[in-house]
Design a protein around this nucleic acid. Sequence first.
DNA 1: TATAATTATGCAAAAAAATGAATGAGACGA
DNA 2: TCGTCTCATTCATTTTTTTGCATAATTATA
Lengths: 151, 151
Amino acid sequence: MQSKISRQIKIKKILKKNYISSQEELVQYLANDGIEVTQATLSRDFRELGVVRTSATEGSKYTLTIDESGKQIRKLIAFEILNYEHNEHMVVVRTLAGRAQGVAHYIDKLNSEFIIGTIAGDDTVLIIPNSIKNISNLIEVIHKIMNEDQN
Amino acid sequence: MQSKISRQIKIKKILKKNYISSQEELVQYLANDGIEVTQATLSRDFRELGVVRTSATEGSKYTLTIDESGKQIRKLIAFEILNYEHNEHMVVVRTLAGRAQGVAHYIDKLNSEFIIGTIAGDDTVLIIPNSIKNISNLIEVIHKIMNEDQN
DNA sequence: TATAATTATGCAAAAAAATGAATGAGACGA
DNA sequence: TCGTCTCATTCATTTTTTTGCATAATTATA
């Protein structure tokens, strides 16, 4: 029996390549790969991975959503952000090298009313508030992201 | 604050702002923030976070390395990569939306002899081999990254 | 080199996460 | 409405991870 993460990696691959329309079906696919799990576990995996049922031409199938709502993504972002600073006009977030684009993308997708845009370099994200009056609200948003750890 | 991840986030912040030259010292800082841990735990945290002792002007201090060797980064990359495909000339890796830059950065830093460069869009990384003869070696590298989960 | 200071690690306990079995909940067609 | 199918959830259990303590190993210092 492999680890959870390797099972989830496998799930991503299978969903990408095959037409899977029920969790039980995926149980079979995984079994063929020597991974034994029950439907209950897949239900949880799907939630964590952000898998959704989409209606295809023939019936419906499961697809990977590339959305940013998964719990793992949130943890990931928290890990990537090192710190932040701000002045009266904007907030600058420092990230691990090469991760700024990803962090900015996540922040964009939050659709926060306080943010009108982000710009990302290699390890720096610039966040522009909709008003300088909202800098503090904006900081609160960032702070929350950094301390993301509730399950 | 209780979880490991939030403690490590805090550690990153503290190291960034303060001059910490021993693990015991950090124990104190954390205690001031209401986080109680022992030196043993910090020793392990440092390894996981890639914290190193650097010699500063006055003595030595601990610094965050922004390197790509940490175990957490490897797991993260494996999570971000969805799949890959290739033709005779190159390999194309698909990632979660907005994560391609980060993945490409990681791949660059591998300094693989088989890779002469990467180009990243939003969710796609193009990897160019040093020779078309090495496509298979290159694929092996990618494959290994995707299945990164040994502890 | 000897001593002190600091960090890493083996081990056991505690805490947290993952999992399966059973079952509840919801959708859908007969 | 009833029965069927599928997914989500609860509960109990197993497995894994985290952690502190004690101490070994290492590093710095006199």
